[in-house]
Design a protein around this nucleic acid. Structure first.
Lengths: 196, 196
DNA sequence: TTGCTAAACGGGACGTTGTTCCGTATCGTC
DNA sequence: GACGATACGGAACAACGTCCCGTTTAGCAA
């Protein structure tokens, strides 16, 4: 995959060299700021860190969602690819599902506030919502189907439903060490089990 | 209980008649605006609807949390009192727990955005957080203990943990009819079950 | 190398929201 | 009726997202 394209498929390669430089600088700056101030960090902060004007952010990333997607795209891809790998690893499908959910949870909780904006249906984050779901729901569905086919879990649960639930469970998991999102997600998954 | 006192115990009866009138007007206006615009509605909107200045809101309710608490206090009380009642109703403790969680979920999802602000540990909502938890966690703990004592569920789950999880599951449940928070909460509770 | 044009830039302007301050109006009492 | 404390209103301030416009610069052609 080419590092220059971005967004969910509709990639447009920036033509001028300075534009590409700035896009790279913005991605690096955003990644750094997201770590310290969360994904809700003020646009001005990111622009300042990248050494560009605020308008330049909007020129490259029309919405904050586009920027977030670009920053975390690689990690989302890795998570998506882990699904089939876990399924092929020899464990039971239910165990694979559990491990994959753990990966997903870990990804979300390590990004301050990402889970919170992920859930929001409004405020211009539809793109983010759509990207995450488009990429990960099929993977989750595959795991779910396999576990259901093996008779390990009930079969009346949709992947999208489960993912939204898990995503919600991750909200606020950072900033509160007493709250263990992974444990709760595990309980949720356990709730899918069929009684033998 | 006197309708004039408000907040979590430290009630101070407004001395002047106009102050009390304004407080009532604010509560009514806030309740109305919360329904249409959610609990994040602009302060100015609420003030305008009540026919008062913005400062008057802050004078009566120093933080938004105080206002929210005052508006929903009766419903929270009802939810809290439902716990022991369900437990005494003759069903198994696990069934009572499930019903109570349903009540809690229904309360949260019918208030636009309430679940979202409930979870936030920062931004001046500590008061709201504390009130809800102080009032409802003991009730949940009672149900949990009863079910655990009956051998129906595992005993290593804290009430606060479960409530935060359920609260999170309710986030964004309004504004998306495909997302069924009650169902997911049910699955979460099912995940607590012991295998007979 | 030099000059031109479209692309890209910067930062200031605007609208929205939360919050505070201060001069004014009102209530309750003497 | 007058007075002091209480409460009020709205303007003022700050932070933020977003947009606009005058200026700069990259890339290309002569």
């Amino acid at each position: 995959m080419n590092d220059d394209d971005r967004g969910a498929g509709r990639a447009v390669r920036p033509r001028r060299a300075d534009a590409r430089r700035n896009e790279k600088a913005l991605l690096d700056a955003a990644a750094a700021v997201f770590v310290t101030s969360g994904v809700d960090a003020p646009v001005r902060d990111i622009a300042a860190k990248a050494g560009v004007g605020t308008a330049t952010i909007y020129r490259h990333f029309p919405t904050r969602a586009d920027l977030i997607i670009a920053v975390y795209r690689h990690q989302v891809e890795a998570c998506a690819e882990a699904g089939p790998a876990l399924l092929a690893a020899g464990e039971t499908p239910y165990a694979a599902l559990g491990r994959w959910i753990d990966l997903f949870v870990d990804f979300l909780v390590t990004k301050h506030g990402l889970a919170a904006v992920l859930r929001s249906d409004s405020g211009g984050f539809e793109t983010l919502h759509a990207y995450f779901l488009d990429r990960l729901v099929p993977v989750c569905a595959e795991l779910l189907d396999a576990a259901a086919a093996a008779g390990e879990i009930r079969s009346d649960i949709e992947a999208i439903e489960l993912m939204r639930g898990v995503g919600n469970l991750c909200i606020g998991a950072d900033s509160d060490p007493r709250y263990d999102a992974r444990r709760l997600a595990g309980i949720l998954i356990a709730g899918l089990r069929l009684p033998r």
